[in-house]
């Protein structure tokens, strides 16, 4: 699995950059040309010139996205063994598998910018890189798995659909595939909740409890309010971001509340339809909680990273064996050719 191209991602990116003339004199011209291409809605590809800030921002965002997929496998994966029917078990396995695939896909897309998967994973485990704060909340009942599908994947889709038109080609193309699968995730989650609401009072209570715990954190997935967002304006100019955090959050609330009402859960009293704006007002979020969770304050933050560390450590001997075997095979192939 590591043998198709033995160059490191850094080497690949360095070779890719070599084709591009870069001197202090022509940097301004290159940047102007770069921005003009973005303004014309053209894609930037791995071998194209790009400002360092653009590269850095994308690596940060894409790796954060990949880490979220991988860490996100944990709260759902722990329910695979307990899924209530064979059908639900198969759906959940497929969903968690999709997430592993998204992570892999996104790490690969980030590697096109010159940072290897190994380095990105190191940053995650060292606490230097972030992932979506939502996964620091625990999944305490089965309904949580379904609610994650509906709300968390729903919020992710709202965030990611605009990214299908992101200016960086590999990221935009990855998002097209990811969004299709996320859409399946959202529908299966909502459908599973609809079924539970047809069941017993205990099941309905489970759904309400789950909605109450996940609704507000899912709104926080869009990031801090626009008034306090560090990266927004430059990212808009680079078309890494096309809508503001608050715009996307509002879009999500407007789509979700009618779904919650149809499902039959009680939505918080503070949420009311504003007749003038035709949007749902939802008041102020608890940003203290958000910031605390970003800083590792969620119930599960250390468990999540410990679980990833353990998987990596337990698998060291397997990866070493695979590398040793691949090297032996390569030597044998070369010897045979001679």
């Amino acid at each position: 699995m590591y043998t198709t191209d033995l160059r490191t991602a850094e080497e690949k990116a360095e070779e890719a950059r070599k084709g591009v003339p870069r001197s202090a004199l022509d940097t301004d011209a290159l940047e102007a040309e770069f921005q003009a291409r973005i303004d014309a809605d053209a894609y930037i590809e791995p071998k194209d010139y790009m400002p360092d800030g653009y590269r850095k921002t994308l690596v940060r965002q894409m790796s954060q996205h990949a880490h979220s997929e991988i860490v996100g496998m944990l709260p759902e994966g722990c329910w695979v063994g307990r899924a209530p029917t064979l059908k639900r078990k198969m759906i959940l396995i497929a969903k968690v598998q999709d997430e592993a695939g998204h992570g892999l896909y996104l790490y690969s897309a980030a590697e096109t910018l010159g940072t290897s998967r190994e380095e990105l994973v190191r940053q995650l485990l060292a606490g230097e890189a972030k992932y979506s704060t939502i996964f620091n909340y625990p999944t305490t009942n089965w309904s949580d798995v379904c609610t994650i599908g509906w709300l968390v994947d729903g919020a992710a889709i709202t965030n990611q659909i605009p990214l299908c038109r992101c200016s960086y080609g590999p990221y935009a193309r990855a998002m097209v595939k990811v969004c299709k699968e996320e859409s399946f995730h959202q529908r299966q989650g909502y459908e599973a909740l609809l079924q539970m609401m047809k069941g017993t009072e205990a099941q309905k209570r489970m759904v309400q409890d789950s909605f109450d715990r996940w609704f507000w954190p899912s709104l926080m997935m869009f990031g801090p309010p626009d008034s306090n967002s560090a990266h927004s304006s430059q990212n808009m100019k680079w078309k890494i971001k096309r809508f503001s955090n608050d715009e996307l959050r509002q879009r999500f609330v407007d789509a979700t509340i009618p779904q919650a009402e149809f499902l039959g859960v009680k939505v918080p009293d503070v949420i009311v339809k504003n007749a003038e704006t035709d949007h749902y007002d939802f008041g102020e979020l608890d940003w203290d909680e958000f910031m605390a969770v970003v800083k590792g304050g969620g119930i599960c933050a250390s468990n999540r990273i410990d679980a990833r560390k353990k998987a990596l450590e337990d698998g060291t001997w397997v990866r070493d064996a695979a590398s040793a075997y691949a090297e032996k095979q390569q030597v044998a192939t070369v010897a045979a050719a001679e």
Binding site: G77, L86, M90, A94, Q97, A100, D314, G315, T316, R319
Partner: peptide
Amino acid sequence: GEWLSKGPTLELDIAASNLALDLIGQAN
């Protein structure tokens, strides 16, 4: 299914989930 998110590599997480899916599908 118990291997999900615990595999030695991401690729093997994906392989494990495929094996689980095939077998649960057969069982069904």
